[in-house]
Amino acid sequence: MRVRFRVAVYSKEGKRLGREDFIAFREPLYVGIRYVVEFKYLEATKWLMLAKDCQEKYLLLALLNFSLGQETQAREFLQEALKHERATDYLFVIEKPEEGLKVAIERIEASLPDFLLSL
């Protein structure tokens, strides 16, 4: 599957998280995050849709949809993310390894969609 960029997950200490960091979790949010770090974005979307409402759920859904070229849905999820509080300390990072690009999404801003569409 062709994507515009990858989404990586980092701990607050700066460690890149992988599949093994989420394997013991059974809550839909964490299962969805596990699939994100495995680059299985369609499966991640299914689990994230089942997760309880939180900013991470909707931010990840927005990032995945932008990555897959679904801009309309991505903008809707981004607007929804603004309405919810954070549930974790994870940092989400946009990566384009072929270009050496790595950008952390530390907060949701109005210019975020324009930036993501430019990738």
Rank of each mutant, 00 (worst) to 15 (best):
Q55P: 06
E80D: 03
Y41S: 06
E109M: 08
R6G: 11
E76A: 06
K83W: 01
E20A: 12
G32T: 05
M49G: 09
P28T: 06
A104M: 15
Y10G: 02
V93C: 04
R6I: 07
L61S: 09
N65W: 02
W47H: 15
I33H: 07
V7Q: 04
K52V: 00
R34M: 12
E99Q: 13
E106S: 12
L50S: 12
Q70Y: 12
C54Y: 04
R26I: 10
K57C: 00
E13I: 07
R26V: 09
K96V: 14
Y30C: 02
L17F: 09
R26E: 14
E106W: 02
T88S: 08
L61N: 01
R16W: 06
P28N: 09
D114H: 09
D21F: 05
L78N: 00
A62E: 01
I108E: 05
E27L: 06
E38S: 14
G14C: 10
K15L: 11
L117H: 10
V31H: 04
F66Q: 05
G69A: 09
D89Q: 08
K15Q: 11
S111H: 14
M1V: 14
L29E: 05
L42K: 12
K46Q: 05
V9T: 15
I94C: 05
L91S: 04
E98N: 11
R4L: 09
Y90S: 01
Y90T: 03
V3N: 15
A110W: 10
V103N: 04
P97H: 13
L59E: 01
W47P: 00
P97R: 10
D89Y: 05
E20P: 04
P113G: 09
E109V: 11
P28K: 08
R107V: 06
P28E: 10
M1I: 12
Q79N: 15
K12D: 11
C54E: 01
E85R: 03
I23R: 15
D21E: 15
L59A: 03
